[in-house]
Structures are given as C-alpha cells and as structure tokens.
Design a protein around this nucleic acid. Structure first.
Length: 564
RNA sequence: UGGGCGGUCGCCAAGCGGUAAGGCCCCGGACUUUGGAUCCGGUAUCGAAGGUUCGAAUCCUUCCCGCCCAGCCA
C-alpha cells in the first residue's frame, strides 16, 4: 500500500488513483528495461530506484528486462555488468530476468497478425528513400509505393525476409498508419528490419529484428506490466505504443514518462561515456571518475547513498540538472555514520619533538567513530619523530589560520599540544625540511591536565610506525558545470578536468591500516572519505581512492578572502 | 511555420482557488581535541501581460522562453 502521508510524486499519484479505480485487478507491475549496450550509470539508478521502489511500495513486482533488439550494439559483457550493478544497488528481481529476445517468436507472430489485418506491409524503400517519403516536421509524408501490396504478398515477403533471402536493408516491415500524421512516429514506422548479425542470445537464429517500438510495448504486455515507466523522449512514441497494443487486443500497460536525470560536472549519455572509455580518457567503465555504478562503487560510494540521492531528487517531468553537490551530500551523510576514522598524512612534512625522549613510544587511544561509540577505540603510536600535513603549517600564517606556524601552538589529535620552535630549511633550495617543536607533557589527551585549549587540532602519524600508501585524489571529471558549455569550434572533451586525478605516492597512514581490505571505507580525519582500491590493491602498499572530501569551511573562507 | 512536453528560491522540488513545504548550495551564530558532525537563524510571490474571483502559483486568454521528434538506435 502506498504511504498516504508521505509526499508523493506524480507517478505515485497516478498509480494510487488506478488502484482506487480497481484497474489491473489491483496489481502493480513495473520493469527496468536496459539495453545491454553499455554500463549502467547514475541516471539508470534513478530509473531502477523508481521502478523497483514503486513495486515495493505498492506491493507489486518489478522485472529486469534486457531490451536486446539490436544485436549490432549489444554484448554479454554488458548484461553481466547490468545484473551486478542492479544487485549492488540493492534490488532483487527474483527469477524475473527477461529478455526482449525471449519474445522474438511471439513478436514475429504478432507481426503476422497485424499483416493479416491489413495494417502492416513490406516496404522496399531504402533508408534514404524512406526519409524522403517521410516528409518533414512541417510537411506531411507521402505513401510508400509498396503500401498497397496484398496481404498474401506481404505475408510471403515477410516470410522470405525471415528466411534470409534478402540482404540487410533490402526490405522492412512497416505499420500502415498515417503518412500525414503530425507525429512523425506515426508515419508508417518500421516494425522489423533485416540484420544479418549474430545475437548474443539467439545467435544466428534470426536475421530480422523488431524495432524498439514494436518490441517494447508487446514485451511489457507479455509480462503483464501495468505501468511502463520511461523517459520523456518517448512521450511522442506513446500513441504508437498504444496503437500496436490496440491492434493486437492484448493486455495494455500504461506508459508514463518522467524526466531523466542530468548531473552537473559530468556526462550521462551512453554515447559520451563509451567515447571516454574508447578514447582512454579514463581507465575503463569502472574508472572512479566515471558516473557509472561500477565507477561509483570503485570510488567508494555506497548503494545506500545513491538510493538516498535518488529519493531526494524527486520525480517530475521538467528537464533538470541536479547539482553533484547533492549526491556528495548524500554520500557524506551515509559515510559519516559508518566509516571508521583514521589518521593519514598525504603530503608529509617531518616534525621532531625536541623535548620528547628519544626511543620512547606511547600507545594513545583514538576513537574509531565519534558518531557511533559502539565502534570502539584503537591504539595509535606516538613518538619523537612525526609527520604532519604540509597544509597544516604556514611560515607566515594568514588571518584566521589556526594551525601550526613558528612560535604558535596546535593540538595533535589524541596526543599533545605542541609548539613550533624552529623551521629547518634546505640551504640549497630554501625548502622546509623539518619542523622542530616542543610538546607540553601536561596536555596529553584525556588527562585531567588537558583542559588547556588551543584553536587548532591537526592530524599526524608516527614516522617509525606509519605505513606507506598511495592515495589517488579524484575530483569532478569535468571542470564546467555543464560539459557541453564550450567555445565555438570545440567540443565537450575540452572540458575534461585536467586535475580530475592526482596521485600521491609518499603518503603515510596509521599502522592499523596494514590490515585494510579492498573496498573498505575510512574517513581520513580532516581530509575526507577514502576507500581501498579493489583493482590495484597490494597488501604491502595499499592504494586508497578519495571518495569525497569532507566539507571544508576553511577552504571557503580562503576562497572568499581571495575574491575580496 | 507541424506535433508533444515543460517553465515555482543559485540547484532539485512540494503545492491541485484560501493567502509560497522540504532538501542541496551559500551566509551568519552556538558547540567542538576532525575549521567534520550536530544545533539554531537567514534568503522566492510562483516565465510575462491581461481577465474571472471576496481571494489565484493554482481557473480563462494572449504572449514569451526551454526541451524532444524527420534512425531500418533505444
């Protein structure tokens, strides 16, 4: 039953109303119908969540159906990835995994039925001619010279098309509707085309394949789908969807269209994603910068965050582009609750605590997750030689900087307050080689003396105990909000963010991370959320992917200062 | 100049004749051993113009703007 208190979008309203009127015997049945010609992306996630979500909400069912009517573009690699991604997102289609190709035989018989009713004909026009005959947006088309063939001749020709007597494109089967329709989809659309191609499931059994228009509605009907939810660009196809079903007098699902998702700073068209992969602008469909589910997964996103995102963006008919910040917010929200915290220094600068005994090591206690006490604590070793983040030291601190600088104090998280007493530089380059500091033994974390407050707290790592790691800093794949916003004469590829990946090779992380497993997610305190890369992982030297940064108020302040 | 669909805060999005929800972003402030989290507070008169009405984002009229359609792709 639909929650009548929860705010609902227009599709939920339609279904509620249908149920109220007793349509479909109170049944709700949807389907997610991907074409296996690419990997699933976040836009598909919206559709998956919508279709499976509605099924759950209204106590119905949702099928997974591969829309595999074009063997020249499809591949099993894609069907496998799609299965994996839908499952990863958290949805289950039970044993209802279907393929349009499962219905090729029935579809063929449907076509025969329409031919016998005198509502379809075999046309000999080639692609160019057909375009000419179709007319334009403002001029009606002309009837094909083959439109009035006899039913017998049509039957015979169609049979021979199926038998493989003709070459690709020599004939098509067309619906006989109305060449003057203002809706171009109704100007005798093609139902079947000849394609001598090997299909990933039916092999060479067929050499004629149904078009989307002829296959989709009938497949929905065969499966008993009640609400066939698709994107806006199919709105113009609805009259055709309805027309076929009416000719056949079969179960008639209702097609409902909603606006597809667009996300800022990325592209979501299959064609463009394919191009990024083929041109090797990224390392593959699962490159952590890709908006594919495989990419997000490798990047460290959680299915929960993506589902939350899909819920929050809503469902409507207006074209829109959601700010990627919305997605990142959902991610942080989820990771904040579940990711264990750990300290990692990405760009190390050496710190020597002058007054700390040489050779001494203390095991300090650090909280694993302040949001969840049940996650416990862990020991973190402290010693005389440490590393801190380069960003956490400024020789000439700007206004509002409350990290470390000469003569100033800062707290080392879970440890002591230290003071910078000297800056050692390389006499050649002038670059800082190490910081000499002193610590205040009275200020140990958790001790009764530790009431002294300092403005800043920074993370650190004990040099002798830290382990080395590679960290990959990912940023938006495109630097512009709208990748298509380009100067004349250039294309979207010029908007690829040259800094979308930065690899850091001399990072030092807490010893506890020696046990990190591929796919595990952590919060590197003050930096962001990171996950262990599952492809390039090696135990001796883990690779971490930055999933998303933490909200960085200080960065905002600096940005504002720069502008002023 | 054809047909279809849309236009509510910077970005999403509720609202369905009774006097503009919520989320994101942003800006303040509280708290804080993550400049994180959390908590308070702040920001729209609804594409435009007319009209109907006691009353309109919601109804009517006209206009403007955007998106989709001329694949034997989906």
């Amino acid at each position: 039953m639909p929650p009548d208190s929860a705010p609902s979008h227009f599709i939920q309203s339609i279904i509620s109303e249908d149920l109220k009127q007793g349509k479909n015997q109170g049944r709700v049945h949807t389907r997610f119908p991907p074409e296996p010609n690419g990997y699933l992306h976040i836009g598909h996630a919206k559709s998956i969540c919508l279709n499976f979500g509605i099924a759950t909400e209204f106590d119905g069912l949702c099928n997974l159906r591969f829309d595999d009517t074009n063997p020249s573009k499809e591949d099993v690699e894609y069907v496998e990835s799609i299965r994996e991604d839908v499952r990863w997102l958290g949805f289950d289609w039970g044993n209802r995994e279907y393929y349009a190709s499962d219905y090729f035989d029935r579809l063929y018989h449907f076509a025969l039925e329409i031919i016998r009713a005198g509502k379809a004909y075999v046309c000999d026009l080639n692609a160019d001619q057909m375009r000419e005959y179709r007319g334009t947006l403002i001029e009606p088309g002309r009837n094909s010279p083959f439109r009035e063939r006899s039913i017998e001749e049509n039957l015979n020709l169609f049979e021979r098309m199926k038998a493989g007597e003709f070459t690709d494109g020599a004939h098509t089967l067309r619906a006989k509707i109305d060449m003057a329709s203002p809706n171009l989809n109704m100007r005798d659309p093609v139902m079947y085309r000849i394609l001598h191609a090997t299909h990933h499931r039916t092999s060479d059994h067929w050499c004629i394949y149904p078009t989307y228009d002829f296959a989709h509605g009938q497949s929905d009907s065969i499966e008993g789908v009640t609400h066939s939810i698709c994107t806006l660009e199919f709105e113009d196809h609805r009259p055709l969807y309805d027309w076929f079903l009416d000719q056949l007098s079969v179960h008639h699902p209702q097609q409902i269209e909603f606006a597809r998702l667009n996300l800022s700073h990325t592209v979501l068209s299959k064609r463009k994603l394919l191009e990024l992969v083929q041109q090797q602008r990224v390392t593959g469909w699962d490159d952590p910068r890709m908006p594919t589910l495989a990419g997000f997964r490798r990047r460290g996103y959680t299915p929960e965050a993506i589902r939350m995102f899909c819920e929050r963006i809503g469902v409507a008919k207006r074209n829109s582009t959601v700010d990627i910040a919305m997605l990142e917010h959902c991610l942080r929200d989820d990771l904040n609750k579940r990711a264990p915290r750990v300290m990692a220094v990405l760009r190390p600068i050496k710190v020597v605590i002058d007054n700390y005994p040489e050779g001494q090591v203390e095991g300090l206690e650090a909280v694993n997750n302040p949001e969840d006490p049940s996650m416990g604590t862990r020991p973190v070793p402290f010693s005389r030689l440490l590393y801190i983040e380069q960003d956490d030291f400024r020789e000439e601190p700007p206004k509002g900087f409350f990290r470390l600088s000469p003569g100033r104090e800062v707290r080392l998280r879970y440890a002591y307050i230290i003071k910078c007493v000297d800056v050692v530089k390389d006499p050649q380059t002038g670059g800082i080689t190490e910081l000499r500091c002193t610590y205040d033994p009275e200020t140990k974390s958790g001790s009764s003396q530790s009431k002294r407050k300092v403005k800043g707290t920074i993370h650190w790592v004990s040099a002798a105990h830290a382990i080395e790691a590679e960290v990959r800093l990912y940023d938006h794949l495109f630097s512009k909000e709208d990748p298509d916003d380009v100067p004349e004469g250039t294309d979207w590829l010029t908007n690829i963010n040259p800094k979308s990946l930065e690899r850091l090779n001399s990072c030092r992380v807490e010893p506890i991370l020696a046990n990190a497993k591929p796919g595990e997610r952590y919060q590197f305190e003050r930096l962001g959320y990171f996950c262990v890369d599952s492809v390039d992982f090696v135990k001796e030297r883990p690779v971490f992917n930055r999933t998303v940064t933490l909200r960085d108020t200080w960065a905002n302040v600096q940005r504002a200062a720069k502008k002023a």
